[in-house]
Design a protein around this nucleic acid. Structure first.
Length: 714
RNA sequence: GGCGAAUUAGCUCAGUGGUUAGAGCAGCGGAAUCAUAAUCCGUUGGUCCGGGGUUCAAAUCCCUGAUUCGCCA
């Protein structure tokens, strides 16, 4: 029977760029979702931006825009990043929308009026008298009471490691205004978590009738048990104005704390899906009785840092508000890069955007994560040397190579038509075909992607060894061996197809290309791998499916993410839309002072019609490679990615830009200019740049973030 | 400080009481030349963090120490 799943990834905060650490979770969830879909299950995968809180409010203020403008921009960036890594949400919402607000208010009213779990009492907090703002701990700094270190945060000292309350700080100051905060009391609203223990303890600690657990990971259950043992305290769910969020009903000037509405954003986002024509029924997934009858599941993928919220507050608020609590929470570990915490100064705080902008294949990362992920909460390490070796060896050397070394024979010798491959013809040194497939499926289902990848690569190894043993290149030269050659290559392609199906959840784009090559739309289903394509099936010409990772490009990625700037003052704004540091800091030509322009401004050329202008096909292109040209005074050789193809262009900008500074940036090119033979090769287009005729610098056109190779400029 | 997790080959990791601890990559030696240098065969390499204990049997269970990383609402 098909499962009916509502699956979520945790909501990223609308205050910064998506980086490789975030992507562990979205890629993990997306792989699991794609796998479940291939197996024929009904899956709704939703997420949203987490948009509320003091930090968003202050950030917008600094940028001189409204919080609504800030979160709209960041959401747009986040959605681009996720799409770039093939994370396929069915809906990507925002916690700041009517759908989420409606569920927040409904849950709150039921907790207050029906469950009677809301209470109020005054709380004394630091208050910034200049900004008229209650200050969260992270916006207060001062001198450590233990060791005397200056400029320490309100909760812990980074120098001596001791922890304390913000009120213990010596000479505290507000990082927002610099003012000395004062103590002020205010009424706060609380959710009485302590009264939920009778529900929460068995819910989180006991195995269910069907043998499953809310928390399948024993280490997660242990962690939660620790918190029970420490005692559950009431949870402060209110914040005072000014605050960016939802106002609490019947409590003017009081707002819901961001962590109350963040998980409710899952349901708000899901509501959008339900409101579409033919969408799922909201109550089937949220009402306890309806959900039970419909057999639906609610599954959350999260980082281990937010287990507390998802395993205690969230089930409690849902349950006591008359909603169905989640069926599963899966927590994963953090990402380290080269064995250490991600670091801006080391360049290992790598953003999703920089990965995509530098033209690195997102599926390289998806595969590497899959190979490292298991069902536990352990951290995983992205070792960049290992990454290059692993992706090149497994994906290019093993997997893609099987198709690459057998397709040509089938296409050239047998007109692309496959020979009969009996389903029973499966390498002896592997487990039986369907058994192996089920084993891999169990690993995927249990989120043991690393085990799945190991099993899959063992198949690739076996087939490569078989190709060597059969030696089709020998058969091809031997007269009378055509039948054996045909059968052997068809069998190798069957092995490749098996692998492509098994890897589809991890490598959806590559699998789609493999499906196009094999001319086989059925590969979107897991069962497609159970048996070979029928004899007589015609495949298409093989085109290379994946290129190798060049270690130099990984080095360039790290360079692009390295923060070379002086440590910024806390007040400094780092807009996420800032172009790549490599572009703005490297060898930028001296800014000419207007009065210094060495020559007169040229007169405007004769008027042309819009039709004349339309003849020029201007395209956004990404500089994939840039090389100095030996023997040329002015030229730089550029390899431009214009989306559909690559162009070689010689640009006369050597005096103004170093090749290193150009790689990865976007430029505007004339795409339909007649190719021109030059001494060093053919130039297939022209890159637009501004200059005065008499000299004084050449300035390439820059593009705002979001522009992608192949877009037409008009 | 309290609690928890981790530590296995040069690297990344499997391996939760049962032969002589495994894989991939890297290294070394050979083969092959179909494949966008991609492959195959063979091979080197380990005090399973240190110490103690339980057991017929320990990488695996217990105690203890070291180091690293988390969590402490």
């Amino acid at each position: 029977m098909p499962r009916r799943l509502l699956v979520t990834s945790a909501l990223p905060y609308a205050n910064g760029a998506i980086h490789l650490g975030h992507l562990v979770e979205y890629i993990q969830t997306d792989i699991w979702v794609r796998f479940q879909r291939m197996r024929g299950h009904e899956v709704h995968y939703v997420c949203a931006d987490d948009t509320h809180g003091t930090a968003i409010m202050l950030r917008a203020e600094k940028e001189g825009i409204t919080p609504e403008q800030l979160i709209a921009r960041v959401r747009d960036e986040h959605m681009h990043d996720f799409a770039g890594f093939h994370v396929g949400f069915d809906h990507y919402g925002s916690t700041h929308d009517a759908q989420t607000r409606a569920v927040v208010e409904d849950i709150y009213r039921k907790l207050r009026d029906d469950a009677k779990l809301i209470t109020t009492r005054p709380v004394e907090q630091f208050f910034d008298p200049v900004k008229s703002l209650f200050l969260p701990d992270r916006f207060i700094k001062g001198t450590c009471p233990k060791c005397g270190a200056k400029n320490q945060y309100g909760d812990a000292c980074e120098v001596c490691g001791s922890t304390y309350n913000p009120t213990d700080l010596i000479d505290p100051y507000s990082t927002v205004s610099g003012a000395t905060p004062v103590r002020r009391s205010s009424e706060h609203w609380f959710f009485q978590l302590g009264r939920c223990e009778a529900f929460l303890r068995p819910f989180t600690q006991d195995v269910r009738a069907d043998g499953t657990w809310f928390l399948e990971q024993p280490e997660a259950r242990n962690k939660i048990r620790e918190w029970f043992d420490a005692g559950l305290a009431d949870w402060d769910i209110s914040r005072d104005a000014p605050y960016f969020g939802f106002e609490i009903p019947d409590a003017p000037g009081k707002y819901f704390y961001v962590w109350l509405d963040a998980p409710i954003g899952y349901l708000g986002s899901f509501r959008h899906l339900c409101d579409r024509d033919g969408g799922p029924d909201f109550a089937d997934f949220t009402d306890p009785q309806r959900a039970q009858a419909a057999g639906t599941e609610l599954v959350h993928f999260i980082g281990k840092d937010i287990l507390y919220f998802h395993a205690l507050f969230w089930p409690a608020t849902l349950h006591f508000a008359g909603y169905r609590p989640p069926t599963h929470v899966y927590a994963h570990g953090f990402l380290t890069v080269n064995g250490e915490k991600m670091s801006k100064s080391r360049g290992t705080f790598i953003t999703a955007r920089s990965w995509l902008d530098l033209g690195l294949d997102p599926e390289w990362l998806r595969y590497y994560y899959a190979a490292k992920l298991n069902a536990s909460m352990e951290d995983i390490d992205l070792n960049l040397d290992d990454f290059v070796a692993r992706v090149n060896s497994d994906l290019v050397g093993k997997f893609v190579n099987i198709a690459s070394r057998s397709a040509k024979f089938v296409v050239e010798r047998f007109d692309g038509v496959l020979a009969d491959v009996p389903a029973s013809q499966w390498p002896d040194d592997l487990p039986p075909r369907t058994e192996l497939l089920e084993q891999i499926a169990r690993h995927y289902d249990a989120r043991d992607f690393g085990k799945a990848m190991r099993d899959i690569m063992a198949v690739a190894d076996t087939f490569n060894a078989q190709v060597d043993r059969v030696a089709p290149w020998v058969l091809a030269k031997a007269p009378g061996e055509a039948v054996r050659l045909h059968q052997a290559c068809s069998q190798f392609l069957d092995g490749f197809r098996f692998l492509a199906v098994a890897l589809s959840p991890v490598l959806p784009a590559l699998a789609a290309r493999a499906g196009a090559f094999l001319n086989d739309p059925s590969m979107q289903r897991w069962e497609a791998a159970e048996r070979p394509l029928p004899a007589g099936h015609r495949i298409n010409t093989y085109e290379h499916l994946m290129t190798r990772v060049d270690p130099k490009r990984i080095a360039a990625l790290v360079d692009a993410n390295r923060d070379n700037l002086q440590p910024a003052a806390p007040a400094a704004v780092a807009a996420p839309s800032t172009p790549e540091p490599a572009v703005v800091t490297d060898t930028a030509p001296a800014t000419p002072v207007p009065g210094d322009a060495p020559s007169a401004v040229a007169p405007v050329a004769p008027t042309i019609s819009i039709d004349d202008f339309a003849k020029i096909d201007l395209r956004v292109a990404r500089v994939a490679e840039a090389h100095a040209v030996d023997g040329a005074d002015k030229l730089v050789k550029l390899i431009l990615d214009v989306g559909s193809e690559q162009r070689q262009v010689f640009a006369g900008i050597k005096a103004h830009y170093t090749p290193e500074a150009l790689v990865g940036r976007h430029v505007v090119m004339v795409a339909n200019l007649a190719p021109r033979k030059m001494r060093f090769g053919e130039s297939q287009g022209m890159v637009l740049a501004a200059s005065f005729d008499g000299g004084g610098g050449v300035f390439l056109l820059d593009l705002d973030p979001g522009a992608a190779p192949g877009m037409r400029v008009k």
